[in-house]
Design a binder for these strands. Sequence first.
DNA 1: TTGTATGCGTTATCAC
DNA 2: GTGATAACGCATACAA
Lengths: 370, 370
Amino acid sequence: MDEINLFFEIAIDCQNLFFIFTISPMKQKKRTTIYDIAKKLNITASSVSRALNNSGHVNETTKKLILKTAAELNYKRNTLASNLRKGQTKTIGVVVPRINQNFFSNVIAGIEDTTYQKGYNLIICQSNESYTKEIKCINTLINQHVDCIVISVSVESYDYKHLQNVIEQGIQLIQFDRVVDELETLKVINDNEQASFEAVCHLIEQGYKKIALLEGPQNLNIFTQRKTGYLNALKKYNLPVRNEFIIENAWTKELGAEATRKLLSLPEPPDAIFASTSDFSALGVLEVASALSIKVPSELGICGYSNEAFTEITSPSITTIDQFSMYMGKTIANLYFQEKENNDTIVIPKIISIKPKLIVRSSTLKSLKS
Amino acid sequence: MDEINLFFEIAIDCQNLFFIFTISPMKQKKRTTIYDIAKKLNITASSVSRALNNSGHVNETTKKLILKTAAELNYKRNTLASNLRKGQTKTIGVVVPRINQNFFSNVIAGIEDTTYQKGYNLIICQSNESYTKEIKCINTLINQHVDCIVISVSVESYDYKHLQNVIEQGIQLIQFDRVVDELETLKVINDNEQASFEAVCHLIEQGYKKIALLEGPQNLNIFTQRKTGYLNALKKYNLPVRNEFIIENAWTKELGAEATRKLLSLPEPPDAIFASTSDFSALGVLEVASALSIKVPSELGICGYSNEAFTEITSPSITTIDQFSMYMGKTIANLYFQEKENNDTIVIPKIISIKPKLIVRSSTLKSLKS
DNA sequence: TTGTATGCGTTATCAC
DNA sequence: GTGATAACGCATACAA
């Protein structure tokens, strides 16, 4: 009965790695199927299937017997076959630029949390901000016959035939955060424009008058929206728009730092910088300011975007915008199930816009210092 | 041909949420199969299959014709059926305590990166540190017939029948980071003991003499290993082990802070704290020290674990240990493929231990200050 | 209540 | 080179 598991170890220490080699026998098993159970009990597979699924009628005693022997034989349902038969996979595909970015991993965690409760699985893909990889991800998900695809498009994506394709294949498509406006799909987004507007108003109300904007790639609508919010706020307070204060493509820490150096060396430098792209670029701003001994917030106000954990612990702490990422994930999942259940009724929510929240911290509290 | 897509929007603004309701028609599509292609070309499905898979012989011209019409009909292979037939899913299941913890999301990103290149998919589950959920995750992955399960066990898990089950079902099991030693599986781990040892030696060499340890749940071997490393270092330098300096279960920021308050109120408080559990608890230490105006590193040395991004930007920056999490993920994936290819040969690597790296930063550089 | 028959879409093994 | 056929494991409509 018991397999003898001989093994023998060789240790090799080589720089950073430490291997232990082991000789071990390979094993291959045949899984038990409903037929195996049926054969053992001298009944047919259909009865076993019914018993295991609680569907149709089946004698209570035989049912108990079936469940018992199923446990004994360590039966595990082959979801593949089941799904093929039923034409649904109870699987949701998720495509994000990067799994290990806080915002996205939080959204995924949120999705997983609610979908799990409904017995759904998640297939995760990362586009790595690449258009071609995004297409491949979408295609594998279609091939996998997922019931729904959730996506936040990559920065590179300029064409959306692959997303159109998803819809054509009858797969529910839900976009979030970075959405393609033209595409008629379910969407869960942040009200970027409003959040951005409020952030800049806050800066102005704190007494900052020359506010610079670090903007992200404008082909992503979230960044154009944030820019609009910025412009609207300036307009509201009758402040001039200075083109030299608007820096394109400053959406990493390094680019944020670079932009800051450029801004601060202007004849008339800004007195506040709104890093509308991310907290990382805000961090770049802060580091440059520190290096140049420019006092934050008294000489320079800084506002980021996303409420990354670290914004709370920098000195000074960074004012930023919380996107409720985890909640966003749950919302996406709920939207899917809601849509699924209501697909015979008529009224369904199509776009859910979550209003982000401005988190005011030290880096913009100029008024307290004066 | 074109469907008419009537829709009508109602907007409701309610506190944080902004809904737009839309009336839209539901759509259901029948996907094209190889039979559809075959029928259209007056050939059989088997030829189509051969053409699409480049397997067996098929006339070059008909092959081209097949590929062309497949594209025209927007054919997508049904991976479910294919997998069922072939008995392999090219899918890897990953179970981690939390997706949105930096270490884990990095490992996953690493896994995804390499598996993707081989055409594999990832099904992600989070155990939320719960034993029962972990079991459920494992079961769904088994049901899904994944080819491999990668897991870092939850803190709650006290029994490992479910993992044993994975092996019995003939599924490759790879443990990483938090591994169950008793289980004979592939493992990718960090050399926690060594890293911890080096960290504490570094503290001692910097002149700290009374070093406290914040330890994690000792049922997880990673934490016992880190404790052992700590003890070994003390031993090496003939420093006494003081029980009041060893605080159990201080593995969050809050618990780290609490432990620190306790430690610093001792009649003879420590002059350094090694937060062996995580950088978060180290952050708790730092915050309490700041609040109490205790100078870091001159009066108190602090060392964390994991090299979270924020450790670089606290003031002072925090000395910590890098676990090469992304690399770890790639290693896991490579290990799987290696094992898969070599399953007929005999010698295979069984445990890969990655040596973490001590990252020395300001929070422990006492010697520079004196 | 149970058994029979069929199909989900694909691939592999035969013949031809 | 191509076609017929069976099988992967399960679920269900229908008959008994």
